[in-house]
Each structure stands twice: as C-alpha cells, then as structure tokens.
Amino acid sequence: MRRSTRRVRLTLGAALAACVATALPQGAASAVGATSAAAVDGAGVERVSVAPDGTQGDGDSTGASITPDGRHVVFMSSAQNLTATPGTAGNRAYLRDQTTTVTQRMGDYTPLSPPVVSGDGGYVAYPLTWVRNVRIRQYQVATGFTASVNCLAYSCNQPSLTQDGRTAHVVYWNSPTQGQSIEIQEWTVGAKQTVATFTHTAPSRPSISGDGLHVAYQNGLKEDVFVWDQASGTSSGPIEGQDPSILATLVQLSDDGTKVVYLSGSDTYVHDLASGTAQLVPDVRGVAIDPTGRYLLYTPNDTSGPSLVLRDLTTGTDQTVSDQPAKAGVDSVSAGGRDVVFHSAADDLVPDDTNGKTDVFVRHFD
C-alpha cells in the first residue's frame, strides 16, 4: 500500500458462549402480500419480493439489503411481474418501499453483484457490464434516472454508499497499468480521495461508514483488514485475530463506523475501533452487523441448527432468523436488530408461497 499504516494488536474481550437459548420473535409487522405463517419459525416473517397487490414473484429473488430504518429493501430478481410495467428477461435490481408497498425497478441492466442502497433509501447502485469494461450505475430512486458519473476509461466495481448517497461512495477500479485503487468519489462536485492503491486486482471488499469518514477494506492478496480514517488520511492495520498467521477476511464496517466484522479461521471477530479490542464469536461465520454495531447476523458452522441467527453482542443472546435454509449478505440488518432481510427457497415461511422460486423475506423482531 502507498498509505501509511499502523499495526493494530487486538486485545480480546470475553468470548461469547456459542449459541445460547434462542428467543423467538413475538408478533409480525404486516404488509401487503406477506404476514405471519403457521410454520414454526413463520411468526414475524414477511415476503417482500412481491408486487404492490401482493402477487408473488414469477422469478428468483436474491441479494437483498435493507436501510437502517427498515423502510427500503433492495434486491435482485428475475421476476418480471413485480412492477406495473413488466420487466425484461434476466436479473434486474429492485427497490421496495415497505411503507408504501411500492416496488420499483432500478434500470434495465443486469447487476454483476447485489445492488446496494444508501442509508436514506434515496439511491441505489450496482456494477454492470459496459462495452468491454465494468461500470457502476447509480440511480436516484425518486426519479429513476442515473444520478452519478460512471468511472471513465477504467473498470470499476464493489460500490458502497454513504447515508445520503449523494456526497460520497466507494468504488474499486483497475487498469492494466495501475492495478486497483479504492476511492471515495464525491460525485456531486467531482472530487475524489484515494483510500488505498494496490498492484493487484484481488477483491478488496470496501465498506464505508454512513458519514463517509471511515472505510474498511482488505489487501486482497494477503487478506488482512485495514481501516482508513478521513481525518488523518491514513489507514490503521492490519487487524487480525488471536493467531496472526491465520488470514483475516473483511465482512463489514458498521454504518456508524465503530465496529469492523471479520473472519479468521472458523471464528468471527467484532473489532471495536475506539478501544482496539475485539469480541470473539467462536465457530460461526459472520454475515452482517447492524448500523449501531450491536447486533451480529451469523451462520453457525454447525449445519444441524438454524441457518441464520441474530446475536446481541451486549447480552450474548441469540434469536433465530431462519430455521430453513437461507442466505443473507452485508447491510441485511436494520438499526437495533429490528429487521433482518434474507432470501430462501423454503415454501413454508409465509402462507401461499406456491411459486417454487427463491424469495426475499424480512424477519421482524420486537
């Protein structure tokens, strides 16, 4: 890297015991097209990959993220009946407003990876194939129009949006002569800041805080984790687990910029940037962290139990998100762990799931 760094040695906090008794959610938030089910883990589950009138999608829906307030869910779907105007064949990006129950198609391109949404739900971005390069397309939800300038003369990928989505977003770009660079692009004024530069093009997984002041990323070849601070213009790291010889893989930076989740071996660590200490969550694969840094969504390594579990890192208690096979990605937990978005092909999470497709669901907790 061309940026100065300082090594962070982790002091492990008390390790949480794995999988304490689960607490099932009470009640469900109702919405058009999905309410609670009679299945054992159906209470509090809502299907959101539906048309405004509740019609289930006629294609597979995956790759969902949710805004901190739980109002907006963005996902990919091959369904063509989610909006009033039928879509074209192939995967497309969609945004559902949980308050109005309106689902919008965000462009007619095929995302190369799941779309991301700004914290306020105002912007959606995703990478797509553009001629012989890759471009990041960013849409303004209110108008449906492209809202940002694509990177020019280079391929760019891996977007991560700030809270308002208008002032800064992180992109990854590369060229045959320069490798890759992680940048913050303030597209409203055309300004750029370089976070880190590498001579390789291995994934760097950039994750930006809601205020744009911190960016977590990894050196893709070494798989070690760093955090960039805008105030100093430097990166701290590498952040590593108990055994520095075991490589670390970045999962996500919390939206408030206080916690970094990463994997090391078979364990998950939640690193506190202020104290420099880390909380060990053993024998699980961390998937996402809520915007406040308190709630960790994880998949147990033991496949005999639930597929997705939400842990309160303060109390050490767990709540089952799904007992059925299910998957989720980063930005899948709303603030305070109130909502968790995921996708599953299970047909008994909500009533009348007869499409035989993978759908996007939200688990609501009180």
Rank of each mutant, 00 (worst) to 15 (best):
P244C: 06
P244S: 08
V251I: 15
S254E: 07
S254N: 04
S254Q: 09
G257M: 03
G257F: 06
T258L: 12
K259H: 12
V261E: 04
S266N: 13
S266D: 14
D267M: 08
L273V: 12
G276H: 11
G276E: 04
T277G: 05
A278T: 13
Q279K: 14
L280C: 03
L280F: 00
V281T: 10
P282W: 06
V284S: 02
V284H: 09
V284N: 02
R285K: 14
G286A: 09
G286P: 04
A288L: 10
A288D: 11
D290R: 11
G293M: 05
R294N: 13
L297D: 12
L297Q: 12
L297K: 12
Y298Q: 09
T299W: 02
T299C: 03
T299V: 07
N301M: 08
D302H: 11
T303M: 07
T303A: 14
G305Y: 04
P306F: 01
P306V: 05
P306C: 00
P306T: 07
S307W: 11
S307A: 15
V309A: 12
D312P: 10
T314A: 15
T314M: 11
T315A: 15
G316M: 07
G316S: 08
Q319D: 08
T320M: 10
V321D: 09
V321L: 10
D323L: 14
P325Y: 07
K327W: 01
A328F: 04
G329D: 11
V330M: 03
D331M: 06
V333T: 06
V333Q: 05
S334C: 07
S334D: 01
G337L: 05
D339G: 00
V340S: 06
V340K: 10
V341M: 04
F342P: 02
H343D: 14
